[in-house]
Amino acid sequence: MTQTLVLAEFSEGKVAKATAELATCGARSGEVAVVVLAAPGTGDAMAAQITTGPVASVLIIESEAFAKFGVAAVADALAQLVDAYKPLALLIASSAFGKEVAGRVAVHIGSGIITDAVDVSADLTATQLVFGGSTTVLSRVNHGVPVITVRPNSVTADVTPCSPSISHASFVLSENSQRAEIISSAPFVKGGRPELTEAQIVVSGGRGTNGDFAAVEAFADLLGAAVGASRAATDAGWYPHSHQVGQTGKTVSPQLYVACGISGAIQHRAGMQTSKTIVVVNKDPEAPLFEIADFGVVGDLFAVLPQASEGVRSRKS
């Protein structure tokens, strides 16, 4: 059986687009089995949400351990599934969580690992953009079952309807995985805006906002965009750390990235320069980000953005 295992992604209880993206990559090499790791009694409802993408089967494991022990428990479950199913590869979404899970699984099963792929071909060659997107690297795992994490929003998902077969499995939680316990958990509430790494459009604010993100948010909402922030803005406490774009924050690669009042330190560029189209609004004509902007406006974001918002609004009506 030439199967490819995919770890399903859920966000706020809903199946994330990344699941179909991973399945799309996986289907190029094998038959996709999506793994749903759920709290007891919730697996079937979660699996029932997987209705699009090239998914042949869904494998549910229910356990309290996933919420209680996090990364370590998830890695145990996946490593045991790999041992049992001997798949062609294991694909996981690239996030802090997904990469740590992948790292533990790779050690566990003695396999090579590739993180942050933006594409995976039929022969499991992964494409990565490294050094802030300045170099394209093709690499392959040559030992064990390849463990590959794929960045959300980088592969166009095949969203053909599917009706996968559903089955249940179990796993044994190792003693070592119980050594760090999650005592409480407070997921970020996204407030109706799309997830930063999954958004087609991202509007970001930086030092130039002076802490006032109203104009940035208003423009973002009109475009159905996610809101990002530079490190300067999150360090100043103007916007939550979870929205930081850049080397030490998130890497985004949307169709459109609008940078408002962000000068464009190399650390910020590293997180956004693979965006398809880049628009920059900044008062300072010397701001380095203009060097990579497809369209730049030298001006005050508090004048330019409201006018642009008005323009978008009038085109919509």
Partner: peptide, 16 residues
């Protein structure tokens, strides 16, 4: 770098 304009009161419209 692509197009770069200076806002002369119509920067937002040009962006749109």
């Amino acid at each position: 770098a692509g197009i770069k304009i200076s806002d002369e009161g119509n920067g937002g419209d040009a962006l749109v």
